[in-house]
Amino acid sequence: MQTILNFLIKHNHWFLFILLEGISFVLIVSFNNYQNAAMFTSANSIAGNMYETLSDIDRYFGLKSENDALVEQNAVLLNEIQALKEELKGYQDSTMLAEHVAIAGGRQGYRYMSARVVNSSYNKVDNYMTLDKGAAQGVKPEMGVIGKDGVVGIIYQTSDNFSLVIPLLNSKSNINCRVKGTGSYSALHWEGGDARYSYLIDLPRYAVFEKGDTVVTSGFSSIFPADIPVGVIDYLEDSKDGLFYRARVELFVDFTNIGNVFIIGNDGKEEQSELEKKGEKE
């Protein structure tokens, strides 16, 4: 007995080692499955505030190019408004108008909220991004996030004033996309490596599309409205089992240099997901 005790006391660092490694593994595993782990990420208030200060300083140097980009975007939006107004004029006398507008406006209410990226990475297998808006500003998990060029990701966790995003550059990211102009749908997967590319892995073989086609959101999930740009197909090959096409998609959003984003809230989302759940049950 004494010998065993002595042995245990002499080698007590083994137990500490196993304990600490145990804690680490619990953290690794729980972060992937447990929704309230925000405390151990940069969405906690200390790390969040620090990154915010840093990005304030960093942003100051980018003001000019940011301004240019905003002016450019303004111009595009103005043009769009003009085009829509003209189109509306055409409908003015139509009896269809009332119904048409009511359907477009009332079916799903998407709201946009601007936010700033205070921290992001792009070199790991599972990258994350921290935004400066949180639960106090009305951000909830599973809201969509887009940049001015296209889809960025989906909100994963929120704290009071910060939120954590799973961007497209995360192996957990899984966004349903459509090849524009065709009816082929597929999920977008990132496989690590180059931050510019992601993959559509199960495009049906009968679908007609080619290199250079634009990939947009499908609008099925109610997280993103339909037809938000994602990227351009830049390489096509057969999938491993030969049943599908696999397309490499060059992403529109430059994840190595991202500043302002928009969070998309969907008021009609709960209604839709409730309905879908009901359908699955029956």
Partner: peptide, 24 residues
């Protein structure tokens, strides 16, 4: 030594969104 390494790893983890990786 173990406690210092663990604490340091965890601190870096919290800032880099990799809970547990650096700590382990």
């Amino acid at each position: 030594l173990l406690v210092w390494s663990f604490l340091f790893g965890l601190t870096v983890d919290i800032f880099c969104n990799t809970p547990g990786l650096n700590a382990a």
